[in-house]
């Protein structure tokens, strides 16, 4: 993990968010444990797609746990918390995947939350054209953010911005959420100006990347729905429940 040191020019909000970041090793261990078959005490071996679905479910559960610990979010009533997460669940999952690939740093393979590395040639051969297309589009964004030198401080702030990216008119507690949005935007702007003064438009470039995260997440939801219609999704799948939930 990238070591963090505080210091001048790191806004308080970003410092707090860094402290809230889950330990990647613990998340990996929990999810690997969940994917094992408790009855037989050995790794479960469903079809790869079914395993990926359960992996995505468990990753989202980790994201919900992170959100519940987040300042402002934890002060909101459950109804507002649900509204926010229903708005951004797929974007948070996509962004989680993107940042893992940036840390992974290999163009020819992707790293799963379980620590498994999958060659892109394997994805091309086994995943089907829709999923392969999604993975390749995500890899383009990884390259873009890598070129922008996205760092951990910016990552946590962007994640927080995604969580609060809904128009406040859909929420009960307008003022708290609006305040969080403004503070996170200001923190990211201050941070990028202070730490990347040679790249004056980094803040705008990062926000533009969030537009692509949104577009990718829409495509991912279309893919999930396609699999759902084809009866290929496991039962009691959390992501399908999120997909079908009433939107704001």
């Amino acid at each position: 993990a990238e070591p963090f040191s505080g210091g001048p020019g790191v806004p308080e909000l970003i410092l707090q968010l860094l402290q809230l970041e889950p330990d990647e090793d613990q998340v990996r261990a929990r999810i690997v444990g969940c994917l094992q078959d408790p009855a037989k005490g050995r790794p479960d071996q469903p079809a790869p797609f079914g395993l990926l679905c359960r992996m995505a479910d468990q990753t989202f559960i980790s994201i919900v746990d992170w959100a519940r610990r987040c300042m402002v979010f934890k002060e909101l009533e459950v109804a507002d918390q649900m509204t926010l997460l229903q708005n951004c669940w797929s974007e948070l999952l996509v962004f989680d995947h993107i940042y893992r690939q940036i840390q992974h740093g290999k163009e020819g393979s992707i790293l799963l939350v379980t620590g498994q590395e999958v060659e892109l040639t394997t994805v091309a051969a086994q995943a089907g054209s829709l999923l392969h297309g999604l993975v390749l589009r995500a890899q383009e964004l990884v390259l873009q953010l890598h070129a922008l030198q996205l760092d951990r401080q910016e990552f946590v702030c962007l994640k927080f911005l995604i969580l609060f990216s809904l128009d406040v008119k859909f929420l009960n507690n307008h003022s708290l959420v609006k305040d969080a949005q403004e503070k996170a935007n200001a923190a990211l702007l201050d941070y990028t100006l202070c730490h990347y003064p040679h790249c004056g438009d980094k803040f705008q470039q990062l926000l533009l990347c969030l537009v692509e995260v949104r577009a990718l997440s829409m495509q991912a939801k279309e893919y999930l729905y396609h699999k759902h219609l084809g009866n290929e999704m496991p039962r009691n799948n959390l992501l399908i429940e999120m997909l079908q939930a009433k939107q704001t």
Partner: peptide, 23 residues
């Protein structure tokens, strides 16, 4: 899918609701 109160997803509600999580 399972729906909680007001047509909301039940699993997400269970993950967020303190009373449900405490059980």
């Amino acid at each position: 899918p399972c729906q909680g109160a007001a047509g909301r997803p039940a699993i997400l509600y269970a993950l967020l609701s303190p009373s449900v999580r405490a059980v």
